[in-house]
């Protein structure tokens, strides 16, 4: 499923509504929480803004939602303004009613990083796996910090960041490359693929090539998101700019799917 919207705003709103819908129909309870995987980065900011708005409007509670974040820098304290802890606090957690004990982020300051990664995978298993993994991608098609060349069966582990990723992130570190951590802890491609549903947001012309590689070409570890082709319930939501490299035929096909589905009274619901 690929959903195309004219503007980033509309694409983000679509995802926020979708996530809210899924949580509600799941009807999470204290013993049976909705387990949600979450990304950081510029693409999801608008999604979070919509989620917060919906929370404030009383449409959604995060009381019984458990979250697992995709990644965190190694060696950056959680209180650092550029840490993914800070990002999540600023954009989502400080604005909603989520319980601090239900929030999971990798600890990039852990003494034994490998043990930390194993613990994380084990905790995801304990919750019975992730219900919905929300993600974004990098211009090189990476999901989480699974840079080009990552194993498509990878699990949570320590990763060295690709040079492009360091460059792309230096804006969060006073434009100083030397301040950007060069390692991160990240969930693996397989960790994401194990989720019962994967929802990806792709915004902007600079991501157009990545989208094209991931959906029009073969499964390839150089474009790690392409592994989504093997997932039973993927959903990609994009803005028009992100479709620039796609074939007209591809774009038209996905648009027609949505139109036809709507005319048959079927939304983009997850089959039971």
């Amino acid at each position: 499923r690929v959903i195309i919207r004219q503007e980033p705003e509309a694409a983000s709103k679509y995802i926020a509504e979708y996530v809210v819908d899924r949580i509600k129909s799941f009807a999470p309870r204290p013993g049976q929480p909705f387990v949600l995987g979450l990304p950081t980065g510029s693409s999801p900011v608008l999604v979070y803004r919509h989620l917060v708005r919906k929370h404030k409007a009383g449409e959604i509670s995060f009381k019984n939602v458990v979250t697992f974040n995709m990644d965190e820098y190694v060696g950056l304290p959680p209180s650092h303004p550029s840490s993914y802890h800070s990002f999540m606090w600023e954009h989502l957690f400080s604005h909603v009613d989520i319980s601090p004990s239900n929030v999971n982020l990798l600890n990039g300051m852990a003494e034994d990083l490998e043990e930390e990664c194993e613990r994380y995978e084990a905790k995801i298993r304990e919750y019975g796996g992730i219900e919905l993994f929300l993600g974004g991608i990098g211009p090189d098609g990476h999901i989480a910090f699974n840079e080009p060349g990552s194993s498509l069966q990878s699990r949570t582990r320590v990763k060295t960041l690709a040079y492009d990723t360091v460059l792309a992130n230096k804006r969060f570190f006073g434009d100083d490359v030397s301040q950007v951590p060069n390692m991160a802890l990240t969930v693996g491609v397989q960790t994401v693929m194990d989720a019962r549903e994967v929802v990806i947001i792709i915004i902007g012309a600079h991501k157009a090539l990545a989208l094209q590689k991931c959906i029009e070409e073969g499964t390839n570890h150089m474009w790690t998101l392409s592994s989504l082709q093997l997932h039973p319930h993927p959903l990609i939501v994009v803005d028009e700019d992100a479709t620039l490299e796609l074939k007209v035929k591809t774009v038209k096909y996905f648009k027609s799917i949505e139109t036809v589905a709507k005319s048959c009274g079927m939304g983009q619901k997850m089959p039971k």
Binding site: H85, S86, W89, S94, P100
Partner: peptide, 13 residues
């Protein structure tokens, strides 16, 4: 208090 620190470090509700 530093809300972020309470939330992540002390898991304070």
């Amino acid at each position: 208090l530093n809300g972020q620190r309470e939330f992540f470090d002390s898991r304070t509700e």
